[in-house]
Design a protein around this nucleic acid. Structure first.
Length: 355
DNA sequence: AATTCGGGGAG
DNA sequence: CTCCCAGAATT
């Protein structure tokens, strides 16, 4: 088995023949099987950055409708720069990782005021912007500006790790550096940067899949050194933590009590939430329903109840939040579970109104 | 180097 | 149910 060092030393001098063959097979596969995503139709630096932000840790099919709606609402840097954060978060609602939306908005404002609305094309420069890391910087440089630089996402790293039979944890810095050099060398040919990176990512997603790779349909099989079927080092398993949380619905006619997520906390910052039930200042009136939702390592059972303020205690203890009219809740950004709560409440209101 | 940050789709 | 996704920032 080759050591990583050997592969790293080989990288700059991969045989021209190998490079040629690699792209010949891959480009043919891409021509027949590449995905037709809307952000590939007429890419601009803006549309590419929007799509790349949305695609961070989010499956492409999930992103499609969000991307289309976003480009309608915020077609360019200027419209995004002039928007309120509330609108921006509302357009992002349901995608998760909301700091992506806040960072994208910040970038728009920065560009609009400081750079005449133009992104730099150099990956090192791109990395100076909030929310742009190594992958996104190189993706934008290649997909939007045609720079020949490797965009190493999870798919590409997996493909290359198998191709070279790197039996080491693939998230190690040294491993990534090696893969970067190899891909960099592979793409220095006729291949257009945008096509090359897109093809490799699509290929990893569709064929060289994490769990059940379709080796039988692999066009790179003859040059792959992976010892099948042993594939990749397993990831460390994470412990799931189960929690119960109680949400209070406090209403007064057509107004509901909502609070904006604390600005010094990162999760849900800027989004609006129904408050947690707090027995010190609230009284439960009636149970409503349960809702479960899970994310990363948490499995949360949300209990939703109707509640009212305990006015005596409320006087001594200022409570954050404010009354929001029913009609306004539609336009506020809510985390997914809270949006679901809201929709449940609405449908109950409707059925109660029934003839 | 490990954790945090969401949510949904696929198997 | 479990795994994973066109990652980045923070600890």
């Amino acid at each position: 088995m080759e050591s990583l060092d050997n592969i790293a030393m080989l990288a700059p001098s991969i045989e021209p023949n190998f490079k040629k063959k690699f792209w010949k097979f891959l480009s043919r596969w891409y021509g027949e099987n590449g995905f037709k995503y809307p952000w590939r139709k007429s890419p601009t630096p803006y549309s590419v950055l929007v799509s790349e932000f949305m695609l961070q840790q989010t499956q492409a099919e999930t992103v499609v409708p969000y991307f289309l709606a976003w480009m309608e609402k915020f077609p360019d840097w200027e419209s995004l720069a002039k928007a309120q954060e509330k609108e921006v978060l509302r357009a992002w609602e349901g995608l998760g990782y909301y700091s992506r939306a806040r960072n994208l908005h910040r970038i728009a404002v920065m560009l609009y005021h400081e750079r005449k609305g133009e992104l730099p094309s150099d990956p090192e420069e791109l990395m100076k912007f909030p929310g742009i890391g190594p992958y996104t910087a190189n993706a934008v440089a290649s997909l939007a500006f045609g720079r020949k630089t490797p965009a190493l996402d999870g798919n590409v790293i997996r493909v290359m790790a198998r191709l070279m039979n790197i039996n080491q944890p693939i998230h190690k810095k040294e491993t990534i550096r090696t893969i970067f050099q190899v891909v960099d060398s592979l793409m220095q040919g006729e291949a257009e940067a945008s096509l090359f990176n897109s093809a490799l990512m699509d290929f990893g997603r569709a064929v060289c899949k994490p769990k059940y790779p379709r080796c039988f349909a692999c066009v790179l099989k003859e040059m792959c050194k992976a010892k099948q079927p042993e594939l990749l080092p397993l990831r460390t398993k994470i412990e799931i933590e189960e929690k119960k949380e109680k949400i209070a619905i406090i209403r007064e006619d057509d107004r509901f009590w909502l609070q904006q997520a604390n600005s010094n906390q990162n999760r849900y910052r800027g989004l609006w939430l129904f408050p947690y039930f707090d027995p010190d200042v609230m009284e439960e009136k009636a149970p409503l329903f349960f809702l479960r939702h899970s994310f990363t390592r948490y499995k949360i059972l949300l209990e939703v109840c109707e509640a009212s303020w305990n006015k005596e205690r409320l006087k001594m203890m200022p409570i954050e939040g404010q009354w929001v009219k029913k009609k306004e809740i539609f336009s506020l950004p809510l985390p997914s579970p809270h949006r679901k709560i809201w929709l449940q409440l609405l449908s109950k209101d409707e059925t109660n109104k029934g003839p």
